[in-house]
Amino acid sequence: MPIYDTSSIAERIPLACTTGQFGLLYEACSISFREEVSKEEFCSYASSFHHDIIRYQPTPASVVSMGGIVRYVWISDNNQKGLSAAIDVSGTIIGLRLAHLAEYPITDQLKSHFRYRFPFHGEWFTYWGGKNDLVNYHYAYENQRYAYDFIILDHDCSAKGDPLLNESYFAYGKPILAPCAGRIVRVVDNIPDNVPGRVKNEQQPAGNYVEMDHGHHEFSLLAHLQYHSITVVPGNYVQAGDVIGLCGNSGNSSEPHLHFQVSNGSELLAAKSIPFVFENGLELVQGMTVIGK
Rank of each mutant, 00 (worst) to 15 (best):
A240L: 03
Q203L: 14
G197R: 10
Q226M: 15
P196K: 01
Q226Y: 04
V233G: 00
Q204P: 00
E267N: 15
L221E: 01
Q204A: 11
E202Y: 13
A206H: 10
G207F: 08
D242C: 10
P196A: 03
Y209P: 00
V262E: 07
E267W: 04
E202D: 13
C247A: 14
N194F: 08
L268M: 14
S254E: 14
N236R: 09
H228Y: 10
G248E: 04
Y227L: 11
H257N: 14
V262H: 06
C247G: 06
G245F: 08
Q261C: 08
D213L: 08
P196D: 03
V232M: 07
Y227C: 11
S263I: 06
G197E: 09
G241T: 03
V262L: 11
G265L: 08
N264R: 08
S263G: 00
G207C: 09
G248T: 09
N264P: 05
A271I: 01
V210Q: 04
T231C: 12
D193C: 05
N236K: 11
C247D: 08
S266K: 14
V233D: 07
E202A: 15
E255M: 10
H259L: 09
P205H: 05
Y237C: 13
T231W: 01
A271M: 03
E267S: 15
H257M: 14
F260S: 05
G251S: 02
S229T: 10
H228P: 00
C247M: 15
V233S: 14
Q204M: 11
E202V: 13
D242Y: 01
I191A: 03
G251I: 02
P205N: 07
N252Q: 12
D213H: 10
S266H: 10
Q239E: 13
I244F: 07
E218R: 04
H228Q: 15
N201G: 04
L222P: 02
V199G: 00
G248S: 08
Q203G: 15
E255N: 09
F219R: 01
V262S: 06
S220L: 05
S220A: 09
N249Y: 03
S250Q: 10
S263Q: 15
E218G: 08
V232T: 11
Y209I: 02
P256M: 09
Y227R: 06
S253A: 14
N208H: 07
Y227V: 01
Q204R: 13
E218L: 05
G248P: 07
S254A: 15
Q261L: 10
Q239M: 11
I191Q: 09
D213W: 06
Q226F: 02
E218C: 06
K200R: 15
V233W: 01
E211V: 13
H259G: 10
A240T: 07
S266A: 14
S229P: 09
Q261G: 06
H217G: 00
S254K: 09
S263P: 00
P196S: 04
L221Q: 02
V199C: 10
S250P: 08
A206V: 00
